[in-house]
Nucleic acid binder design. Structure first.
Lengths: 339, 339
DNA sequence: CTGTTAGCGCTTTCAC
DNA sequence: GTGAAAGCGCTAACAG
């Protein structure tokens, strides 16, 4: 049933058409709790349906004092990991009766603040931050202001957080390379101001330590999370002039790994045979590259569910929850040539 | 200034603290039109700032009858083109004082309807549809219900639409291949139920017609828009058994092109030298592939601005506006080997 | 320009 | 269970 153009059916209309009072109509259409089975209630719902009634969410929220809306802050949606994260958050929120609203903040802390205010101005019941900076002031501010919130994909050690266990992920990646027979392993991590970069590197070091491999300083590169950063790092690592080259590289995300692939291509090195490569996040593209990329998969769906729960049913310990990553081996990581 | 946790500063508080009436305070803080320069107004704004007052958007929208919010419907955000489109829409909306809210609809028409209702239930002032199906009923429904809306990246010939000129884009791509000396050209288009797929193919055919090239039916493949579809199409086109192979392929989007790259790799064909390849959309990744992909760039920023304007200032002709694409040549498209 | 007043559409006391 | 009435926070007549 559609109302005529321009018309809006209000609760008042439904009540009138059903021959009950406003409050009865309101109660009959209350979607929380169990729907009343009384004859009147059933009738009201039928009439509402026929008239094409839709609750005015503003009036409702204004009165109820809650919006059942969650704000999600991401640096950018054109980063596939962020887009996937948001899609999962959207789904997890919907499953719990919430609507997820996104705002992009770029990399600037001021823009991030502004974007958070925009969301807060829309009276979201809580905020989910997928922004990455470790030195970010926003979580502290939100705690101070008593705003319900959760961090995803990283933590500041204080605010409720849902993330993957990046240390284990880093360990799995490098352990995989070691098990293949590699000992000349380079690690290209994300920026130092991200908790993910630090933890993935720590895991990588642990794996090397266990295998008694000395990590060479010039084979540990901290880069940005973009493809071009990976390319630059790759050129440095694979340059002919630099003497000995690593036989394997662990890249702290799939973008970096793709940049390294491009650099390898330029140096006529075949990824898989001539250079083993492992990425992180396992974005859908990775499996479909000409040389499919081994990568560490992060259970974004699980992280999303946890994050929503941290906001919707707060209080339960622990506040910081880590999900286990999995290594997905593919063609990009083979044994070293002379192993 | 931050309010104490849990506290909410209302307009009433601001009025009281400023020593003026509620309505004076309301007027002083009205953000539309030019801000009043009167002493009282200035004072109110100062007090509001100090108290950390934030307008309750619900109460305001409820009264004003508009939300300054636009709903954007996309099939999925993990498709980079859609993510970029939304980012531009968000920007264009913000520049005009609007907030853009996104919902993902998947590919199912029923889910799309549901997602549209969700957005409409949040009282958006208008809807922007980036969903692709040509046989989609939603635009017609929205027209019937008198809902302000615009289509982006495609058109149904009726509803207000902002898109790239796909026919020209297809022409540019194939014309580029012809200019390089190719005559054995294959085209892998998107699905037949998308206006983009049809128009890009039409443009490709026009270029071939001008050059008196007979399009071979088995070299015109309609595929999905995913990488795996490109891969399948590529395997078909490049199979050794199929006799003569095309020396160039125009792929109707960059995903398809990447799938063809993977297929070429598997057949040990070098993209660029052994096979010329042109994609469409010029997503950021394309420029950074091991073999950078030639692609047709679509001015998403311009399309976004047009779409918002179509909703915010409706009435001006024409209702369907096309932006001009540009071909960006890169390494993936070289001359044929024996030219 | 200012203040008083009504009311946007809904939910929730409160009394029955 | 039901209905009358108050009010969420804000804006727009209206009258001064």
């Amino acid at each position: 049933m559609e109302p005529a153009p321009g018309t809006t059916v209000t609760l008042r209309d439904v009540a009138a058409a059903s021959g009950v009072s406003l409050s009865t109509a309101s109660r009959a259409l209350d979607e929380r709790g169990t729907a009343s089975r009384s004859a009147a209630a059933v009738h009201v719902r039928k009439v509402a349906e026929e008239l094409g009634y839709r609750r005015n969410s503003f009036a409702s929220s204004l009165r109820r004092g809650e919006t059942r809306t969650l704000g999600v802050l991401v640096p950018r949606l054109s980063d596939t990991v962020m887009a996937l994260m948001f899609e999962e958050l959207e789904r997890a929120a919907a499953a719990r009766g919430y609507f997820a609203m996104v705002a992009t903040s770029g990399d600037d802390p001021d823009d991030e603040r502004r974007a958070a205010e925009t969301l807060l101005d829309r009276n979201v019941d809580g905020l989910i931050l997928a922004t990455a900076r470790l030195d970010d002031e926003l979580p502290r501010l939100l705690r101070k202001r008593g705003v319900a919130h959760a961090l995803v994909l990283r933590t500041d050690g204080e605010s409720p957080s849902a993330l993957g266990d990046d240390e284990v992920g880093g360990y799995l990646a490098v352990r995989h390379l070691i098990d293949l027979g590699h000992r000349d392993i380079a690690v290209v991590t994300g920026p130092a101001f991200t908790s993910t970069g630090i933890a993935r590197l720590a895991g990588a070091r642990r794996a090397m330590g266990e295998a008694r491999i000395d990590a060479r300083d010039d084979w540990l590169i901290a880069a940005g999370y973009g493809i071009e950063n990976g390319f630059t790092a790759g050129e440095t690592l694979l340059a002919k002039s630099a003497g000995k080259r690593p036989t394997a590289v662990f890249a702290a995300n799939d973008n970096i790994a793709m940049g390294i692939m491009a650099a390898a291509h330029r140096s006529r090195i075949t990824v898989g045979a001539g250079l083993a490569l492992v990425g992180y996040n396992d974005i859908p593209l990775s499996a479909r590259l000409p040389t499919p990329l081994s990568s560490v998969r992060v259970p974004l769906d699980q992280i999303a569910g946890t994050a929503i729960d941290l906001i919707v049913n707060p209080g339960k310990e622990p506040h910081i929850r880590r999900a286990m990553p999995t290594l997905i081996p593919r063609e990009s990581s083979g044994p070293p040539r002379h192993a």
